[in-house]
């Protein structure tokens, strides 16, 4: 399965089963995450036979809605709960991507998830990479999933 399709399938499964939120792939194609405004990024590193990073970029209002659904309580500010929830989304997405890139689970290691949050930033952890960026839509707004793999 092409990795972009796997990312799409994984995101839809994760959001429908764990977040209880419908997501769909945007008709608006994107090639780059660009400058991220008022966004939180959850990321997980891949090391081994494939090196790179998997990131999910979520605008703050969408992240609040996702975390509220995830936890079943109203969340009104970007706090540790939001960081933890977004990190866990990255972790689950990274695990799914890993299954596409490796058969036995031992030749790629995943880092622990981490998050970045800010009012304006550009996400470019490495220069010479192949990028897959998918834009998703929710009832609360869009978010991006980005995979960067070293060439």
């Amino acid at each position: 399965m092409e990795i972009k399709e796997k990312i799409i399938d994984a995101a839809i499964e994760i959001f429908s089963t764990m977040v209880m939120m419908d997501v769909s792939v945007s008709e608006e194609g994107v090639n780059d995450s660009g400058r991220l405004q008022d966004t939180i990024t959850g990321l997980i590193g891949l090391a081994g036979t494939h090196k790179g990073v998997l990131a999910i970029h979520i605008p703050h209002p969408v992240a609040l809605a996702i975390t509220s659904n995830f936890l079943g309580i109203d969340i009104s500010e970007i706090n540790e709960d939001v960081e933890d929830a977004v990190g866990e989304l990255a972790n689950m997405l990274g695990g799914n991507v890993k299954t596409v890139l490796t058969e036995n689970g031992r030749d790629i290691d995943l880092s622990l998830p981490s998050t970045i949050s800010g009012s304006s930033y550009h996400f470019q952890p490495s220069k010479d990479v192949e990028k897959v960026v998918v834009r998703f839509e929710t009832a609360h707004g869009p978010f991006l999933i980005e995979l960067q793999l070293e060439k």
Binding site: N91, M92, G94, G95, N96, K98, T99, T102, E103, N104, G105, R106, L110
Partner: peptide, 10 residues
């Protein structure tokens, strides 16, 4: 309960 599904690790 994990994202890990590889036969080696499980």
């Amino acid at each position: 309960i994990s994202t890990e599904t590889g036969d080696d690790i499980i």
